[in-house]
Design a protein around this nucleic acid. Structure first.
Lengths: 227, 227
DNA sequence: TGAATAGTGTCTTTCAGACAATATGCC
DNA sequence: GGCATATTGTCTGAAAGACACTATTCA
């Protein structure tokens, strides 16, 4: 590139797509949104939502577009994951895909807004059907990254509403790490990190003692050891 | 992508390149290899080594190719960093670039093997000239990642020869974090992590008391808190 | 009053960090 | 013997982890 006169027609170009791994927590488990393919290749298989990056569109905007089409929601946490580009990952042509992952509070989702329910479905993150393309590999990478991010940043709070209880938060961590934490130690740690602010509100209409509500204080990007 | 009949000619495709940030440690500082551009755009500016991903080539292979062309060395540690694709980052056409970073022991480098020395030069990582394209942004991202990787993995050992002293290792960390560590605490930590193996060899022909040599025990990818 | 979760404190162990004196090979 | 780096241990403070009982709301 550096030492040649540039002539775009000289090079056959790959296609570029984005694929989005949309995580949420629902029914006490980590869920991933998949779309059933209606066409060749991998017709009938489940796949990550994705699509082409158009010629004048920032990559992240393409990912956002897919995300909004499938969930009906804007302003979702979105982060670039990794770029996969094995020459034979798509039987149609050379396709390089830039993967993103998104975290969303399931209360906010409005699936029907855009997609026929039979085509889009939430799957338990650890009980997935056969996936199209190399999407299994992409998902495994995303799961690794998700665990790391929960351990070292506050992105895990994206699974929660703006006001949440420490019990809610602990459940998020327990689901994703698939183990239990001691309630006293968990609270001690979260409170000592100074990442949450107590509100004056108390949850109500729960069939047990209600809990105080908290909000997140820290900014989301920051690296801060949580666990 | 999922719901349309595929017709490659329907979409105007971006060009896809790789750019490689090659780090080494030389003369007690962290260095980055840059190439002087001889053509428009950014003629005369310094830029990261990079080039097009050809149509049947795995992305990482393109990065390896650039790396070997510039350093004359194979089997260098190489890791995908991030994909940059702002529509106007290259004035010629839409170019999406997948960046990689490489760590290499400076003893292994053979710059002259491939490139005219006036075109390729090592720069102090914190005293860079004006860079072409968005390469400054890419480099800043790479520096962040490098620091993180040294803190949480054993990639830092890639700056060292296979057999090294604990003093060598400490110097790598001191250069990249730009601070000094207590020698006793540093050794205590490295040895307690069980990531190095002592050899029976002793460095020799140094103008002071020679040190025992160590080799790395752990695999490189693994996440393990070092500092 | 029973069900279900909220809320709270202490002890022990482990790890991080501060700190300085002696040893050795080479010239 | 002088130079330059190697090698080694203790103490202190902070944080992690184990552990169990009482409180509160609602049905």
């Amino acid at each position: 590139m550096e030492n040649e006169i540039y002539d775009p027609s000289k090079f056959e170009r790959p296609s570029v797509t984005v694929d989005v791994i949309i995580f949420t927590i629902k029914d006490n488990s980590l869920k991933i949104l998949l779309i059933k393919r209606g066409k060749w290749p991998f017709k009938g298989y489940w796949a990550l939502p994705g699509g082409f990056v158009t010629i004048n569109e920032p990559i992240e905007m393409a990912a956002k577009r897919e995300l909004e089409e499938e969930t009906g929601v804007k302003n979702i946490y979105l982060e670039q994951l990794y770029t996969f580009g094995d020459p034979d990952r798509d039987p149609r042509t050379r396709v390089i895909t830039i993967s993103y992952f998104a975290l969303i509070n399931s209360k906010n989702i409005n699936l029907k807004a855009s997609t026929d329910a039979s085509d889009a479905q939430w799957f338990h993150a650890h009980r997935l059907p056969k996936l199209a393309f190399d999407h299994k590999k992409i998902l495994e990478y995303a799961l690794q990254r998700l665990r790391w991010k929960l351990e070292y940043t506050t992105v895990g709070f994206k699974f929660l509403p703006q006001k949440f209880t420490l019990g809610n938060l602990q459940r998020v961590y327990e689901i994703i790490f698939n183990k239990t934490f001691d309630k006293r130690n968990f609270r001690k740690k979260i409170l000592s990190l100074n990442i949450v602010k107590t509100t004056k509100e108390i949850a109500s209409h729960v069939p047990h003692r209600p809990s105080r509500l908290y909000t997140l204080r820290k900014s989301i990007g920051e690296i801060i050891k949580i666990l």
